[in-house]
């Protein structure tokens, strides 16, 4: 019933608008106002340009200042400080151009609105001007690119030898984390070996895998280089640790990597932000299906000695589940068992 009433109401409203519109159109035809160019509406549009310019500038400045602490994520990695700096330098340069060009655009719109008594200037070209505004952006961009390139080169350089390795494997829809253990070398893997007990497809015939251990969180030491070895099990994913300014795709069949140095422990960051529940997080940024939005993992940054203690407390895969080595050839099995017994 209500639906019907609403529908009738809408129809009535529309027909009123229609009538008003028709009458207005007929009046303007009768007046012959369509022939004039410097009409009131031309003036109104010119004024609206200035209103838009002033209004939007105020809104933008006010919101940018007010919300600064909200959209500026705290940074917790060495290279992140550099890229943030680049970001804000670029912001200053582009922001200046943004404001300048918009002031010109809308001011010209207002200033040079149509006037029957005036005539536009015939000004078809000026090579000097063209050269200036080709060269100036080119120089500015070169500087920006060059600083960006230097940062990029350092970020993507090979990881230091002593970097702590962490393997992150994406799958629908979570991350699995593996640590290389004492030897700091991850055991081989093969996707054909994946089964319910061995979700990462670790190849236990490789001795390096004996001390590998899993973790529910990414735990890393502060102030020491960390190397993420990234892979995917099914479709593309992308490791995104926003506070570390870190992002790298996880590609099935093509392992990728990203190394960085965390600069603040979780505890330090909690104190700094005054937020006791703060955690560093990992998200997925390459669309991967239904649960794309929920691939969360926590990164915990510890002091180096806390980290070493944590590592020593972890139990390796084969210790947690001795079945994993039951199929191994006897000589390897013996080695594995020796390893298990030693670490007790």
């Amino acid at each position: 019933m209500y639906g019907l009433l609403i529908a009738i109401g809408i129809v009535l409203l529309l027909s009123v608008i229609w009538m008003v519109y028709r009458i207005q159109a007929l009046i303007s035809v009768a007046k012959g106002s369509s022939k004039k160019i410097a009409t009131t509406s031309n003036k109104v549009n010119a004024i609206l340009m200035m209103v838009f310019l002033v209004g939007c500038t105020i809104l933008m400045v006010w919101y940018s200042i007010k919300e600064f602490d909200n959209y500026q994520l705290p940074v917790a990695s060495e290279h992140g400080v550099i890229t943030d700096q680049l970001f804000w330098v670029t912001m200053a340069v582009t922001g200046f151009i943004f404001v300048l060009t918009h002031i010109l655009l809308f001011w010209f719109g207002y200033r040079y609105q149509y006037d029957d008594n005036k005539r536009a200037a015939y000004y078809p070209d000026n090579n000097k001007l063209e050269i200036i505004w080709t060269l100036v952006p080119a120089v500015v961009l070169t500087v920006l690119v060059f600083t960006g390139w230097r940062a990029w080169k350092d970020i993507t350089a090979p990881a230091p030898e002593d970097a702590h390795v962490v393997e992150i494997m994406g799958y629908q829809f979570a991350w699995e984390i593996r640590y290389p253990g004492k030897d700091n070398v991850l055991g081989d893997y093969d996707y054909r070996l994946i089964n319910a007990n061995n979700s990462r497809g670790i190849d236990f015939t490789d001795k390096n895998s004996f001390d590998d251990f899993p973790s529910q969180q990414v735990v890393i030491p502060k102030g020491e280089p960390v190397l993420f070895k990234i892979r995917a099990r099914d479709v593309l994913h992308s490791v995104f640790a926003p506070h570390m300014r870190l992002k790298m795709d996880a590609v099935p069949g093509m392992p990728t990597r990203f190394w960085f140095v965390p600069t603040k422990t979780t505890t330090e960051m909690r104190a700094e932000l005054g937020d006791d529940e703060f955690e560093y997080e990992i998200a997925c940024t390459e669309v991967c299906g239904r649960g794309h939005f929920s691939m969360r993992r926590v990164i915990t940054v510890l002091e180096p000695d806390e980290y070493r203690e944590w590592v020593s407390e972890q139990e390796s895969f084969i210790k947690r589940n001795p079945d994993l080595i039951s199929d191994l050839p006897s000589d390897l099995k013996e080695l594995a068992e020796i390893y298990i017994n030693e670490s007790k």
């Binding site: 040079y112 149509y114 200037a121 000004y123």
Partner: peptide, 8 residues
């Protein structure tokens, strides 16, 4: 736009 005679 500069020194034009703009018709909106």
């Amino acid at each position: 736009l500069w020194r034009g005679n703009l018709r909106f």
